[in-house]
Design a protein around this nucleic acid. Structure first.
Lengths: 388, 388
DNA sequence: GCGGTTAGTAAAGGGGACATACGAACTGAC
DNA sequence: GTCAGTTCGTATGTCCCCTTTACTAACCGC
């Protein structure tokens, strides 16, 4: 029982992927050399650690250390991202380092087909990664829709045409590994905390601007998904008293102002009014952002309008959560000041001065949702090995 | 080290205040009888446990057990509530059971005098409780204002006339015990979780309707105070596009619609318009609630209006936090359906249907803030003994 | 008074950490 | 080349504390 504790202590050390000697282990864990040695031998026998030869000696001399490192191929994690356009799968080693990916177009409207496609994608990725699926420890799934993470079902994904899809159940059948399902924005926040701008930040919110406006809330260093899994749906907070109709049935939701379709629509309306622009009707947001950066007025105006709406949504987040940081990711990720400036301009009108300390920055992660899905898998596995 | 763990295991058992025998301890902790016995003897020697005589024998016979119980007088906790009207102090035993109270009128505008008054209140309460202040383990403070809980300073309490008051420092000097300072609504949520309607609820928000509208957010069973301590300030979320001016400098804040002064003002305006009411201008909210329950129309209308505003504020909480439960406390606590019905009527217009599962109820705790302050003290002490 | 049952203690055994000590291997100075 | 100094890893004995087993104490019903 004490041994289990100390084993974990040693293994946790090696989570960073570095190699160390038995003496290093003793120093870094506070265990004595004999104890560290005994545990190391156990872990070597179980192939959780592998020897990596002898190291060099220090300036003061001494015997050369026998170095060890975590056997990163002892388990594999799979992350799945069901995006509106594409379904992407990533396979990672025990340290969470990505090994390979595979992607396919999402099949809108046919959840069963969409889920079944994952099987082939995972097989392809594992072949590329040259890691056996027998090592698969757990699967993390991120979905562009509302998710009940307790039951692992996708309650509603309008843009995928899904409703009440028992994702966890089906994926566990297909891949034979424990699976956890979350909203894409939740996964994005996890990735941002792990390898983005929010590393080491205890409490922050990461907004994801896409077909909708979602967010992932990290509180006391833990992702908070809500009691059923639909926390962070700031996109359906009302920001305008007489706003447009939203898919959710209400009016004036943030999504009607600041989502990718809303930005596209704003540009389209400007074009209809005859304003001069290099853009065509129905342009993708990334294109709009590019044009805005090159000075296109309707594009800039659309981003400004989105920014003002976002400010209202962010003010709710600030007042309610008092986070250290707000991160904005998704299709508008490259907009920089074109989106941040309008937010900062509008924000003081609806938030407390005591919240001015909260920074607002753009994300720079290219695949936050997918990376987050892998992190979800790792988190699930760690919780399981913790309990078992 | 293992012993420390098992000692805690045994002590935690006795947190419920019940008495048990050594055999009971062994059964309930999973320890063996000899281990339980050894630890019990240690705790007896340290006077953390006290013998309470022999128990009765069961139906099947056997030796009579020697019963023990937690020595609840081994430490004392003090909770302080700096309310707008009154400053109240509560002293509690090691199990958190309240022993005595003392109160005085708050001295508005003079923080130093207000804080110094605590010293006398605590002395009086400890005399009544017949417990020595040398046993004082920690102090919890709840303040009707914005608090930076990291530094323990009250940033701003407009209704107390405070700004940047170093509360923790001063109280620690005065009482000589480690102190923690939180917002009153945060303390209220803690009390609601401990002994109110939210017992065992993992994630909920407790709104406190008073001079302002604050809230305490409990997430994964933990109070979340925010990065600096001002989370839950839903009172300063905008709920009306062209609303009244708020003390915070913005307009249309929930506080301008649903706080106690706002409700009083609504009644006053009705009176000015000549509407028939049993109330006089400037009536206290509790009086307004009473009149409303007896059918007074202007009083009812004022509560309805407040409820509609609250619905907007609550919709933000639901969308962002997806809690299991919303609790409403404070001066309107007795309004029941007169406030809840308008909320439920308005809520669907601004929140997701997937959040319908969240219940909204009134609190029934008479002194949530003060009880919460005691809980804050206990929490601080437990964190300290955990670490030490 | 005697078998059955429960409470608590005593003694022996074992797992695992710790302290100490020692051999192995290497550096640098002379 | 030798030797002191340093570091790595292992071997050995000790101690702590939990567990197992066994025992005494105290109570019941018959």
């Amino acid at each position: 029982m004490v041994r289990q504790l100390n084993r974990r202590l040693v293994l946790d050390l090696f989570r960073d992927g570095e190699e160390r000697s038995r003496a290093d282990i003793a120093r870094q864990t506070g265990l004595t050399k004999p104890s560290a040695s005994a545990i190391t031998d156990e872990l070597l026998a179980e192939e959780l650690l592998v020897p990596t030869g002898v190291g060099s000696v220090g300036a003061t001399g001494g015997r050369r250390p026998n170095l060890l490192r975590y056997n990163s191929r002892c388990r594999a994690y799979v992350g799945v991202y069901f995006g509106v356009q594409r379904t992407v799968v990533s396979i990672a080693d025990a340290l969470g380092r990505p090994l390979a990916r595979a992607a396919a177009a999402s099949s809108v409207g046919d959840p069963e087909r969409g889920v079944r496609a994952v099987r082939a994608l995972v097989t392809r990725a594992s072949a590329r990664a040259e890691i056996s699926l027998e090592r698969l420890a757990s699967v993390g799934v991120a979905v562009a829709g509302l998710v009940d993470h307790r039951s692992g079902t996708c309650l509603l994904a309008p843009n995928l045409g899904w409703r009440d899809v028992a994702l966890r159940e089906r994926v566990e059948e297909l891949l034979g590994a424990p699976t956890t399902v979350y909203n894409e924005a939740h996964a994005g926040a996890l990735a941002e905390r792990h390898s983005g701008v929010a590393t080491e930040v205890d409490s922050f919110v990461r907004l994801t601007i896409g077909t909708g406006v979602g967010s992932g809330v990290v509180v006391d260093s833990q992702l908070f998904a809500g009691s059923t899994g639909i926390a962070g749906e700031v996109g359906h907070c009302r920001v305008e008293d007489d706003g447009l109709d939203c898919a959710c049935g209400n009016t004036g939701c943030l999504e009607t102002v600041a989502s990718a379709p809303a930005i596209t629509r704003a540009v389209d309306e400007a074009l209809e009014r005859g304003e001069i622009s290099s853009l065509r009707p129905g342009s993708h947001v990334r294109l709009i952002v590019d044009s805005a950066r090159q000075g296109d007025d309707p594009a800039r105006a659309a981003l400004t309008r989105a920014g003002h709406g976002l400010a209202r949504g962010i003010s709710y987040l600030l007042n309610v959560l008092n986070p250290e940081l707000i991160v904005i990711g998704g299709a508008v990720q490259d907009a920089g000041g074109l989106l941040l400036d309008p937010i900062q301009e509008e924000l003081p009108r609806s938030s407390l001065p005591q919240n001015r300390g909260c920074e607002i920055v753009m994300s720079s992660l290219p695949d936050a949702e997918l990376d987050g899905a892998v992190l979800l898998a790792r988190r699930l596995d760690e919780a399981a090995t913790q309990a078992g």
